[in-house]
Design a binder for these strands. Sequence first.
RNA 1: GGAGAGAUGCCAGAGCGGUCGAAUGGGCCGGUCUCGAAAACCGGUGUGCGGGCAACUGUACCGAGGGUUCGAAUCCCUCUCUCUCCGCCA
Length: 411
Amino acid sequence: MLQLQVIRDQQQKVITGLNKRNFKDAESLINQVLSTDSQRRLTQNSLDLLNAKSNADSKKIGELMKSGKADEAKSLRESVSSDKEKTKAFETELAKLETELQQLLYRIPNIPAERVPAGKSPEDNITTKEWGKVPTLSADAQPHWELIKKYNIIDFELGVKIAGAGFPVYKGKGARLQRALINFFLDEALALGYTEIQPPIVVNEASGYGTGQLPDKEGQMYYATEDKLYLIPTAEVPITNLYRDVLLGDDDLPVKNVGYTPCFRREAGSWGAHVRGLNRLHQFDKVEIVRIVRPEESYDVLEEMCTHVQGLLEKLELPYRRLLLCGGDMGFNSAMTFDMEVYSAAQQRWLEVSSVSNFETYQANRLKLRHKSKEGKVQLLHTLNGRCVSITTYRRGNPRKQPVKRRNNYS
RNA sequence: GGAGAGAUGCCAGAGCGGUCGAAUGGGCCGGUCUCGAAAACCGGUGUGCGGGCAACUGUACCGAGGGUUCGAAUCCCUCUCUCUCCGCCA
């Protein structure tokens, strides 16, 4: 959620930024925000004034009662009583305006950073690095969905039997490989000073709002109605929400967390030929890194996180390219995102295996995640997160072959 | 699931319906003292929103949401959570 102050003070910059990500209605939405906000302030002002009067009068009533002037107190009491009805009206109005404002702000995505290129689709992304040599496969090479059958390491049919499509069963070496990768990613992060977190894999509604999955990704999360809990679509949700409504001190920074969790996504409406095999799943494993840092450090940290992920790919000897996503291809919450893609020779396309984002204050504002310095200055922090290379899910297809591009803002 | 107790500031903990944004202690920060430190003493120590260039000021906030009242941390209702005991436990 963008800061109201920023929208108020830098209206033009905000609109320009939103245009860069091809966001429709930026101007009218911003205008609505501003007019709702000014009404809100007006209302609050009236309410405060009225409250101040009632408070003073009430105090006076107490004094009058004490000094035995009961009839004076009585008439004053009646006047305050009638003021209270006006107070109610202002309170209702204020609450209504605040909700309205909140709803409007929820609809506005983050503003892309300066360096983010304008653009509408994946073609406008900029490749900032390439590493490794793309292998050439023999003519009879098979895609992974054939190989897993041949070696009996991942079984989709069994998964269908006990759960449904998109819930594979890993067997034998398949399960071991999975576990080895998780350990590898965790250990690599620990070596860099990350703290390992094992969070709950269900979260409440407040957490969903905190990191921005709610309200707009509502239908994409599994929901346990009885207990009102959402299955997490990414460890980002619980791990970042650890810091919801938190005021961190100098000693608490920087926050450097890593966590492995299974992730659950309904992926409603996204099935098709290009999501075959492990390309898109309802349940998959992921190791996520989450950073919470001072604003002035966040872009250095973003680079550091990318370097870390690249290091993982290099150790795994996977040829990759690094993309700076254009405005139109970025997730809703992000100010700047780098994607790492690995070339699948079998599928003959680039597959997104990692995505590292800086959200600046966008999430922190919603989370009320702030820092208080020794000098007493309070400011919103920057949050960042990234995936340590997908373990069994690939999210992006070849842009040229994939007409409908569906992005989410999870990773 | 049943019964009981509770939720107050960074922590502990007090708080007759009016003078309570909240005693007291600890912590932390600043100062005095000291060669330095400890001790002692003195002072300071919330967040959101509104107004103001600022000093400052208005308002809201004592788990959350409602209610009673001229006035609620204090009374009433609902919910959430925590603790204790009993039950259940793939």
